[in-house]
């Protein structure tokens, strides 16, 4: 089955063509990050407007790269949530209209299911069951994955997502949006150990996350340095280093616990923050000690993309699932409410 995947849940327009026999045929992405950077965050209305302009040109680009024609499409998958309602509606409307035009099945896909299955697109995909750490600007979740649609939520953030904490720390340090990669780059110049930030919620059992206290601690540290006249570039780098180390440590500790709790030896990390180099190193080291293996998608499939939607959609479409009552746009949609495939 040849599936066109469409992702428009936030600030990236992603399109891909996936074939159940031949694998990923082509993918294309347009990132609006530069546009939103001027505003210090994603402006939903601007995001929706850009999806409308970029989606079809990306579809044409993907078909051209794959050497396929529009008539070769056998199904359409699109992100139905969670995400920005207006942005989701763009992808959903276009996808369903294409389905009507081609008289082919259309399926709304859960964005986070796309992320956690993204490593399946790589050469050495993980086997079920595995533990997935979904870590992005909107999510920090640990999930036990026993099969497609068989998700048990092990832990979630009680407040900010890890990526959101990165963005906020970046703002405090005067770095541009999006902050994650900027904080990491600055942290490379920092001195390890000059500051030690708390590892939130690691001093007690459980798999929940909280990053809002760490954010406050970071702000207080920066303010104290500023008052003392010590907030120079080196101090900022040292703060970035300490902040990143605290987030990485916290995520690593929880992943170790989750592997144990779920009795798994495979860990998948997905979502924008999974591109973080130090996080990957720390998780690899931890996994080695636990005799576990870490899997992640290639960097361009860690952030939002159409390939993961085409892949996840294809698995469900092959099982006969499709949208039965039209366009779906669900801004809030718990991952563990998804149905397994039969």
């Amino acid at each position: 089955m040849r599936v066109l995947g469409i992702e428009t849940s936030c600030d990236e327009t992603g399109v891909a063509l996936y074939d159940s026999e031949q694998g990923l045929l082509a993918h294309a992405l347009y990132s609006q990050v530069g546009m939103h950077a001027d505003y210090g965050g994603v402006v939903p209305e601007l995001a929706s407007r850009d999806h409308v302009r970029k989606l079809l040109p990306l579809c044409d680009q993907v078909l051209a790269e794959a050497g396929c024609s529009r008539a070769d499409l056998e199904a359409i998958a699109y992100t139905a949530g969670p995400g920005l309602i207006g942005a989701l509606m763009v992808g959903g409307s276009v996808a369903h209209a294409m389905g009507l035009a081609f008289d082919c099945p259309v399926l709304g896909v859960h964005h986070m299911e796309g992320h956690l299955l993204a490593p399946m697109l790589e050469e050495h995909p993980p086997a079920f069951p595995f533990v997935a750490l979904l870590v992005s600007g909107g999510h920090t979740q640990l999930v036990r994955v026993s099969g497609i649609g068989e998700y048990e939520l092990l832990g979630d953030s009680v407040d900010d997502a890890a990526g959101e904490a990165f963005d906020k720390a970046a703002k405090m340090l005067g770095l541009p949006y999006p902050g994650g990669p900027q904080v990491s780059a600055l942290a490379e110049k920092g001195i390890d150990g000059r500051f030690r930030f708390p590892r939130p919620m690691t001093d007690r059992p459980g798999l929940a996350f909280s990053f809002s206290g760490l954010k406050t601690y970071t702000r207080n540290t920066i303010e104290a340095l500023r008052e003392q006249g010590d907030l120079d570039e080196q101090a900022k780098a040292d703060v970035a280093r300490a902040f990143e180390a605290a987030v990485v440590d916290t995520l690593t500790i929880k992943c170790r616990r989750a592997l144990k709790a779920a009795d798994c030896h495979r860990l998948v990390i997905a979502g924008g923050v999974s591109a973080n180099k130090r996080l990957r190193e720390a998780l690899e080291t931890m996994a080695d000690k636990q005799r576990a293996e870490v899997f992640y998608a290639r960097p361009e499939f860690c952030t939002d993309n159409g390939a993961m939607i085409a892949y996840a959609g294809c698995q469900r479409l092959l099982a006969g699932q499709h949208d039965e009552s039209g366009i779906v746009a669900t801004p809030r949609w718990p991952l563990d409410s998804l149905a397994p495939i039969p």
């Binding site: 409308v52 529009r70 294409m98």
Partner: peptide, 20 residues
Amino acid sequence: SFTGLRIATGVVQGLAWGLS
């Protein structure tokens, strides 16, 4: 309505793309 008019736009885009 911004959100509303994008639904007709999306539907027309999808149909026009699919049916040339």
